[in-house]
């Protein structure tokens, strides 16, 4: 078995053909910067950020609906912090709050149950945004709403599934050689789905954890496979990811949600890439995303090209000029998991 030092040395000295690896998850992107991974590998190995930040792919019309609720009498929008700064077609939730809108930041969806029971005269709308990692918790939230017979809390979903997005990239973008698959999402969906992808698209799919050492090991495995003309799924996060994933969580998702076409900010509709509340739970829906959603892309914004791996954040003409974390034009600059924001904060200007 090779030591971390040997692996680091080999990656630094790699002089084979150029390899472009897409890390799908924003937490990976963040960890790559925090650990200085780029400084540890050969410039021939490019790390490209993918579409795995839920905030970055939410349509602007969805934000508009949240803003509208926040400004309505007796209404309150409950949200995670990241959504506060994402622009709708005109306003962010931060701006609507400054105008007197009622917005409260939560850290857990189940906190919504508590706050709505405490304030029975206020109508609450929970902004349920996320990938497979957070969706089971939204399912639990619906269960709690039903169990406690809560009448003043509904959810507005913008829920995406990662596999259709990766398939979309494999079909439409020819410049990605391999995928560093998301650790958290894979805990839920399992590793076997990537085996099919590896076979179908003839690329390595490697699941990695989030520590610096995990990421280095996953990159090394990808480089090894490409150097040997292999294209396999490899689960390098076995402590958390099983072949079939978390069956209980998957059953919970399936109970309340069903697949639907969904709109991805900057990209458009990806078939079967969203989850919506099943018809029998429609009463809990405050206006979730669908293929009907629309998006206002600000002039010059290249967020879509960034999350599809066509360009790096630095290659967007607005990056670091018109668009910065203090004055974000595109959603990717807003979130702590958004590629542009991560690149900017880490001085890749």
């Amino acid at each position: 078995m090779k030591t971390l030092e040997t692996i680091k040395k080999e990656l630094k000295e790699y002089d084979g053909k150029n390899i472009r690896i897409m890390e799908v998850c924003g937490t990976h992107t963040s960890s790559i910067f925090k650990n200085g991974i780029r400084s540890l590998i050969s410039p021939r190995i490019k790390l490209i950020s993918g579409p795995g930040c839920p905030v970055c792919v939410t349509a602007s019309s969805y934000i508009d609906r949240l803003v509208e609720y926040s400004l309505k009498d007796n209404h309150c929008v409950l949200t995670f912090g990241d959504m506060m700064k994402v622009k709708g077609s005109e306003l962010t939730l931060t701006e609507s709050k400054a105008m007197g809108g009622n917005v409260k930041i939560l850290y857990s969806p189940l906190g919504a149950v508590k706050v709505s029971m405490k304030n029975p005269d206020t109508q609450f709308v929970f902004a349920a945004v996320g990938f497979e990692t957070t969706i089971p918790i939204y399912a639990l939230l619906i269960e709690e709403i039903i169990k406690n017979n809560i009448k003043n809390l509904r959810i507005m979903t913008s829920l995406k599934t990662i596999i259709p997005a990766i398939s979309y990239i494999c079909t439409n973008e020819k410049n990605i050689d391999a995928f560093l698959c998301p650790g958290h999402v894979s805990v839920i969906i399992g590793s076997s789905v990537y085996s099919e992808m590896a076979l179908k698209y003839r690329k390595p799919f490697v699941i990695g954890g989030f520590e610096g050492g995990h990421i280095i090991a996953a990159i090394y495995e990808i480089v090894r496979q490409i150097s040997n003309n292999e294209c396999n799924m490899k689960n390098m996060y076995q402590s958390a990811v099983t072949a079939e994933g978390n069956e209980k969580a998957k059953a919970l998702i399936d109970k309340y949600f069903e697949a639907a076409d969904d709109y991805w900010r900057g990209i458009g509709i990806i078939e079967g890439s969203g989850l919506k509340l099943r018809t029998e739970y429609k009463d809990f829906d405050a206006g979730s995303t669908s293929s009907e959603d629309v998006d206002v892309t600000p002039a010059g914004c290249k967020c879509a090209d960034v999350i599809l791996g066509r360009i790096t954040p630095q290659e967007c003409p607005l990056f670091g000029k018109a668009c910065s974390p203090l004055n974000a034009v595109g959603a990717c600059m807003v979130s702590s998991e958004g590629a542009c924001g991560i690149w900017y904060r880490n001085c890749e200007v």
């Binding site: 910067f33 540890l40 839920p54 990241d82 910065s324 998991e337």
Partner: peptide, 24 residues
């Protein structure tokens, strides 16, 4: 510049905006 535990280097900029809890 911060030398990371893995011996990589990371540039540290000032804080931008408010540190809000993230979504996932």
């Amino acid at each position: 510049t911060m030398i990371t535990t893995l011996q990589g280097s990371r540039i540290l900029d000032v804080l931008y905006g408010e540190g809000l809890p993230r979504i996932c």
